[in-house]
């Protein structure tokens, strides 16, 4: 069946089987390999993408379900410049092996859209559907908070 999506702002189409998982559609059919696969049980979150702005685990959706929807992956974060969440992950050493990083950044971005100034515990709660084996989460939390502060400053700068 044909699946049409808007991914990172671009319209893309591919012919897939009904059973094709969204993550495979993104990685294989659309050749966007920044979205990863880490488990078979919807547990790890390294496949997280934004579907119409909301984080979802793309290993637990069929590609056809994204038909007509908007998807954002890690490749779509940079808009000329790095998104503040990307810059903050580097600045705060929020990543090591990089495997969970795309999912973590997208979940962080979605959180910041609701709350630019989350507490440590609020960030931990928001990213608790995503596993990391390297960082102990300390610097991921910091990175998301730093990005929030950055976005918040940009926002007040824009309104000033």
């Amino acid at each position: 069946m044909e699946v049409n999506v808007t991914i990172n702002g671009a319209a893309r189409t591919a012919e897939v089987e009904a059973r094709t998982l969204l993550v495979d559609f993104i990685r294989t059919n659309l050749s966007l390999t920044g979205t990863h696969i880490g488990c078979d049980t919807t547990s790890c979150g390294v496949c997280t993408v934004l579907l119409d702005g909301t984080p979802v685990k793309s290993c637990t959706m069929f590609a056809f379900q994204a038909d007509g929807h908007e998807i954002q992956t890690v490749e779509g974060l940079k808009n000329g410049e790095l998104h503040p969440i990307q810059a903050a992950f580097k600045e705060e050493h929020g990543l090591q092996c990089g495997f969970c990083t795309p999912g973590m950044m997208l979940v962080g971005k979605a959180l910041l859209e609701e709350n630019l100034n989350p507490t440590d515990d609020e960030v931990r709660w928001a990213i608790s559907g995503n596993l990391c084996r390297c960082t102990g989460y300390m610097n991921i939390v910091k990175a998301i908070q730093t990005a929030g502060a950055e976005l918040s400053a940009a926002e007040s700068g824009a309104t000033a």
Binding site: T42, G45, T48, T54, P55, V56, K57, T60, M61, V107, W125, A126, I127, S128, G129, N130
Partner: peptide, 9 residues
Amino acid sequence: VADPVVRNR
């Protein structure tokens, strides 16, 4: 229920 990302779906 589940985890925050699963809850979105």
